[in-house]
Nucleic acid binder design. Structure first.
Lengths: 249, 249
DNA sequence: ATCACAAGATTGGTAAGACCAATTATTTGA
DNA sequence: TCAAATAATTGGTCTTACCAATCTTGTGAT
């Protein structure tokens, strides 16, 4: 039966199960939505015990490759990159000064995305970006809503690149940065002058996209990041100068 | 959302185990290298069966958060982003035209990295990049070694950014692109004129880094990608013109 | 004949016990 | 004192059993 000399060789049992799914999925024999064999049957087929099979399947479920419905069966799922967010969270908890680092990665993604957006954005995309820009202006006094509009503005730009890879990578990072930047953003938004500069920067970025000028859009976005960084830093200094040695949980 | 203070509430059992590790790791109570409780003991402590506990732990092992040594115990491991490579592989197998997409992401990372490299590269970094450029020139006739030198050249640039996030993301993508681009590279390297253009492009990129000019480096790298893309496309057309309608099973 | 509801079958969820294999700790003998 | 043998610890895996959710099917009322 299983005299397949290559893959089903004398593997670790656990590896055999992984190989089973890996090969079938990569070969396209198992497509999204397909149902896999019942656990007991599959365990017998692969010559492993059900607990071991379940260990591996549980891993694949956590990675988002399988979708399991009790009583019904287990199905191939469309891999969702949202799990990357959790993964990054874990990774970053083990490192110190990676926040700046991730910010760099985010900038990388977004600057590339805005170039693509200049080429591929349609009216609907532009409308959405413009809409969030409007919301941003309308919510200048509300740190919460304003921050959200800010985030959605950038998100819309990335979405307008129509690149799944960029969008998903960006999403994973954005959520991560969200946590640590909310407070700063709240602080920043209290200064009306800073708000004006930021709004102008956003508007210019938006106009560059409308003008379909990738280089200009890239440059303006980069400037925007640099300015935002500087402003945040200055605002932070001011905060600490007013209330030194403030403990943040 | 439902951050109940006593997270060991009446959860899914499976979730209870995940929470156990998640909280302790994020809180720093479990640090890299620490040993976790024996399975049987931990299972009893969390009031779950050993198989269920093992399912979750297996998942964490596959994600690289745990390192297990039979007979010795289970230890907290430094999360390795290399697993992202496998993850991407799975993801991409479920999508059609994502290759171009991932190429965009790679370009994004590398262009940002080269900007940082212009600021942060030290003599050692520059030497390494230059060394691979030399290797690249020395192995013009060897598609295998030449391709490797090409890859290492770009890798060195990203490494010179001294950004862990960028480096790991780049690594995940590079390995992925490696598979599908090896053939094209082999094809490309047969044309001496193309080789000359590529070598010049690499040299210019390198010189921009040495000159510490981020904008120029970014632009030249972008041009390099565009040219490489164009050349590959042309070379591909030529290939298919010679042998049209080749069926691949 | 059709539909609703209930009983049974299928399938995942979890637990318990047992045994094997690798490692580590302990004991014992030279 | 040291090294080999032995025991204890710990992960690796299988088997069995039972519970819970879902699906299938059969039966009875309309």
């Amino acid at each position: 039966m299983n005299e397949c000399p290559e893959s089903d060789a004398q593997q670790n049992g656990s590896d055999r199960v992984v190989s089973y799914f890996k090969e079938r999925i990569l070969k396209g024999e198992l497509k999204v939505g397909d149902r896999v064999m019942p656990e007991r049957e599959l365990a017998q087929h692969l010559d492993v015990g059900r607990p071991l099979l379940r260990e591996v399947m549980k891993s694949l479920v956590m990675l988002g490759f399988l979708n399991v419905r009790q009583g019904s069966g287990t199905y191939i799922a469309k891999a969702d990159i949202r799990v990357l967010s959790d993964f990054f969270t874990f990774c970053l908890s083990q490192e110190q000064d990676v926040l700046e680092d991730v910010m760099q990665a985010r900038m990388a993604i977004e600057c590339q995305a805005i170039r693509l957006a200049c080429e591929r954005a349609n009216e609907s995309d532009l409308a959405r970006i413009g809409q969030w820009l409007g919301t941003l202006i309308d919510t200048l006094t509300d740190p919460e809503a304003g921050g959200r509009a800010d985030f959605m503005f950038h998100q819309s730009i990335v979405a307008a690149s129509h690149s799944r890879a960029l969008t998903t990578l960006y999403g994973a990072m954005a959520e991560l940065l969200h946590r640590s930047h909310v407070q700063r953003r709240a602080t920043t938004y209290r200064n009306p002058e800073i708000v004006r500069v930021l709004v102008d920067a956003h508007r210019e970025v938006f106009l560059s996209i409308v003008a379909k000028d990738p280089d200009q859009a890239d440059r303006r976005l980069r400037d925007h990041f640099a300015i935002g960084d500087e402003l945040r830093r200055r605002s932070l200094i001011e905060t600490y100068r007013g209330a030194p040695a403030k403990q943040t949980n």
